[in-house]
Deep mutational scan, measured.
Amino acid sequence: MDPFVVLVLCLSCLLLLSIWRQSSGRGKLPPGPTPLPVIGNILQIDIKDVSKSLTNLSKIYGPVFTLYFGLERMVVLHGYEVVKEALIDLGEEFSGRGHFPLAERANRGFGIVFSNGKRWKEIRRFSLMTLRNFGMGKRSIEDRVQEEARCLVEELRKTKASPCDPTFILGCAPCNVICSIIFQKRFDYKDQQFLNLMEKLNENIRIVSTPWIQICNNFPTIIDYFPGTHNKLLKNLAFMESDILEKVKEHQESMDINNPRDFIDCFLIKMEKEKQNQQSEFTIENLVITAADLLGAGTETTSTTLRYALLLLLKHPEVTAKVQEEIERVIGRNRSPCMQDRGHMPYTDAVVHEVQRYIDLIPTSLPHAVTCDVKFRNYLIPKGTTILTSLTSVLHDNKEFPNPEMFDPRHFLDEGGNFKKSNYFMPFSAGKRICVGEGLARMELFLFLTFILQNFNLKSLIDPKDLDTTPVVNGFASVPPFYQLCFIPV
């Protein structure tokens, strides 16, 4: 058959498939802009700032609406009420993970971030239990974070109060905490193996944040037939998995079943207990991918939040002064901060919360999916439909947070200066898919920041009023603009 005829037939089939998918069930789905064949609503979305586009569309179609990214149908949730109703009140029905062709290629359905069903539930339950087990290797997770915080302070001392970009050092600290939990080992910041790991993690975040990856996920045929950065992403992930597998083999040879040292040991012990169960989800494949998931999810998000926190503290020296006064009063100079201190430091706690609220790190979270046909607000959402959640619409709700575009710790303080919780605080998402490392991340943010401010004054290279804190939105995360500062020993 003539190649031209084959091409026309293929394009015609794709067009018909697109029209059929977009028209099927439209009477039951939430409203939304009319999609174009094949490309859907992509032309109506700013790929570099999806969150802003969703906010604009919500003003037209309401808090629940339908979009098509290519052939992929998505239902968008915008605003606290619908997000709570879906992710919390109907948590089980909305607990699936959205379709990610690239991740599915890399992870093969294993791990904790992109798995679904029984596998996801069992691996998540085990990971939560293990991360909360403060007795691994007779050292609590808090001990590990405190140790890394001391190392971080010593690295900052080496800058000798000269101007520096904190990106690298602030990236090393949370990565080392995860390494300590998974591998029972922290690395020197100049260790070549550690630097290679950091390089792969950072490069992957840069790649994932590009519009090209959005295109690959919406048109998965590209993955096999086109060159691009997605190939580098898959190569980096394969490198990390190979490295983790080597460490798993080392653990198998040296493990003491009665004295687990780290996450890998705990997983291997669980595998041993379930070795007679042919349906067990505790396999080497799941261990390797879960460890890679924890490394990827637990490094860049925390380091970016820390980097943004220091920029905001530079911009608002009056806030920094209040935090340091609270540190001096509650902790002093002669001991290290600990998590028990947080309950006695409402202002510092409010500042950490406000940093996370203000920066809105992951504006749309990772997409969910419905696990069955769901009736939601008089609409029928078919099983498997991807759910896109606007966390921006919750964290920047102007009824809950007056002047949401302003950095103001009073958003989390009552009139008496006591810490005030808010149900709208969802930087880790909400419901059954809430970030498994939430507790660890909150511990790291509090301890790293208090250790830094206990030991250093922060000095800006320019007038604080002239510092730009506008986030650089890159399609996946909101990151701070480049800046330098000086760490002046107190």
Rank of each mutant, 00 (worst) to 15 (best):
F4D: 03
V8D: 00
L11G: 09
L16P: 06
R21E: 07
S24T: 15
G27E: 10
P33I: 00
P33F: 00
G40L: 00
I45N: 04
S51A: 12
K52G: 13
L57M: 13
K59S: 14
F69D: 03
R73G: 06
F94C: 05
G96V: 05
G98C: 14
E104A: 15
N116Q: 13
G117M: 04
W120T: 04
F126G: 01
M129N: 15
G135P: 14
E142K: 04
D143G: 09
R150S: 13
E154A: 14
T159G: 08
A161T: 11
S162L: 13
P163A: 13
P166V: 05
P166F: 02
R186D: 02
K200R: 11
I213F: 12
F219D: 04
I222Q: 04
I223K: 06
D224M: 06
P227D: 08
L233F: 15
D243V: 15
I244Y: 00
L245S: 12
I257N: 09
N259G: 07
R261W: 03
M271G: 07
E272Q: 14
E272F: 10
K273L: 12
K275T: 09
K275S: 11
T283D: 06
N286V: 04
L287N: 01
L294E: 01
L295M: 11
T299G: 10
L310P: 00
P317H: 07
V323L: 10
Q324L: 06
E326F: 00
I327H: 00
E328M: 15
G332R: 04
M339G: 11
M345S: 02
H353S: 08
I359S: 08
D360Y: 01
V370Q: 00
C372V: 12
D373T: 08
I381L: 10
T389N: 03
S393P: 03
D397K: 00
F401L: 01
P402V: 13
M406N: 13
D408A: 05
F412G: 00
G416M: 14
G416A: 14
N418Q: 14
K421C: 15
F428C: 04
G431V: 02
V436H: 01
V436Y: 04
E444T: 05
S460I: 06
P481H: 08
P481V: 07
P489T: 04
